[in-house]
C-alpha cells in the first residue's frame, strides 16, 4: 500500500505539471521554438522514434563500455593500492588530478590523440575518466575498512595475501564498490554526453549530438524529446544499479536490510 503510494505520488505530480505546462503554452501562446507543449514533444518523439532510438543506442553503448571499463580499472587500481602503500602514495595524487580537472578541458586533447577515425574509442575514454574516480575512491576505502581481527585470523592460519584479499578484503569492500558504481553509472552517462558535445558535428551520432543538432535547427520539440530520453536513461541506470546492490547485499548488509 505504502509502496503503491510512493510510486503514485511522483506520477501524479508529473501529470499535474504536464497539464499545467500544456495549458500555459496554449493560453499564453508561447511560440514552439521557445517552449513546445508536452503534446508537441510527444509528437516529435513519435515522428523521430527510429532515429532517436539509434542515437540512444549509440550513447548507451558508450556509457556502458565506459562504465565497465571504469569499474574494472577502478577495482584493479584500488586493489593495487591495498597491496602496496608505496603505489598508493605514488599514484593517488594523479587519480585526484584526473578527477578535479574538468573533463571538457581534456576532451579535445583526447580526441586529437585518439583520432577522429576512432571517435567511439575517444568517447569511451572520456566517459571512463569521468566515471573512474568514485569506483576507485569507494573500493579503496572498502578494502581499507576490513576487520583487522579477521585479517589477523587469516595470518594465524598462514593465508597468502591473495587469499586474504579474495576472502576478506574484497567481499568487505563490496558495499563500498556498489555505492561507487551507483555514482559512476550516472557519471558515465554524463561523460558520454559531454564527450559527444566536444566531438561535435558529423562524427558523433548519440543523443547529445541530436540535442545540439535540434537546437541549431530550432526543432525544440525534438530537443526536448532527446532530453527526456536522456533523463529516463539516467534513471534506468540508477535503478538497475540499485537493484544489483540490493540483490547482492540483502542477506547481510545493514543498508539493504533496513529497507525491507
Amino acid at each position: 500500500m505504502r509502496r503503491a503510494f510512493d510510486i503514485a505520488l511522483p506520477l501524479l505530480l508529473a501529470a499535474a505539471l504536464l497539464g499545467l505546462w500544456e495549458w500555459t503554452v496554449a493560453a499564453k501562446q508561447i511560440p514552439p521554438y521557445v517552449l513546445p507543449a508536452p503534446s508537441a514533444i510527444a509528437r516529435a518523439f513519435a515522428e523521430n522514434f527510429g532515429s532517436l532510438m539509434e542515437a540512444l543506442l549509440s550513447t548507451l553503448t558508450v556509457t556502458l563500455e565506459a562504465f565497465v571499463a571504469a569499474t574494472v580499472l577502478g577495482v584493479a587500481t584500488a586493489t593495487l593500492f591495498a597491496q602496496s602503500r608505496t603505489m598508493e602514495r605514488m599514484l593517488y595524487p594523479y587519480a585526484v588530478i584526473l578527477q578535479v580537472t574538468p573533463v571538457v578541458a581534456i576532451a579535445p586533447l583526447i580526441l586529437i590523440w585518439v583520432g577522429f577515425d576512432h571517435i567511439n574509442l575517444a568517447l569511451v575514454i572520456i566517459a571512463t575518466i569521468v566515471a573512474f574516480f568514485p569506483i576507485l575512491a569507494g573500493t579503496t576505502l572498502g578494502l581499507k575498512s576490513a576487520d583487522f581481527n579477521l585479517i589477523d585470523l587469516t595470518r594465524l592460519y598462514g593465508a597468502s595475501r591473495l587469499q586474504t584479499l579474495w576472502r576478506i578484503r574484497l567481499p568487505g569492500a563490496l558495499p563500498y564498490l556498489l555505492s561507487g558504481m551507483k555514482t559512476a553509472g550516472g557519471l558515465a552517462l554524463i561523460g558520454a554526453v559531454v564527450a559527444e558535445f566536444v566531438a561535435g558535428s558529423g562524427t558523433a551520432t548519440g543523443l547529445a549530438w541530436r540535442i545540439v543538432e535540434s537546437g541549431n535547427r530550432l526543432e525544440i520539440a525534438t530537443l526536448f524529446a532527446a532530453l527526456a530520453l536522456l533523463a529516463f536513461t539516467g534513471v534506468l541506470i540508477f535503478a538497475a544499479l540499485s537493484l544489483l546492490e540490493w540483490a547482492l547485499l540483502r542477506r547481510w548488509h545493514e543498508s539493504a536490510i533496513r529497507q525491507s
Binding site: N149, L153, T154, L156, R167, P171, L174, W252
Partner: peptide, 30 residues
C-alpha cells in the same frame, strides 16, 4: 605447535557469509 585456534573478544565473523562458511575459514585457507 602452529595449530592454534584464536577467539577474539568480538565474534569477528564475516557478515557476508553464513555460519558454515564462517567456521570453515581456517580449513578453506589451508
Amino acid at each position: 605447535t602452529n595449530d592454534i585456534g584464536f577467539v577474539f573478544q568480538d565474534p569477528t565473523l564475516m557478515p557476508w557469509a553464513d555460519a558454515l562458511t564462517n567456521a570453515r575459514l581456517p580449513l578453506d585457507l589451508k
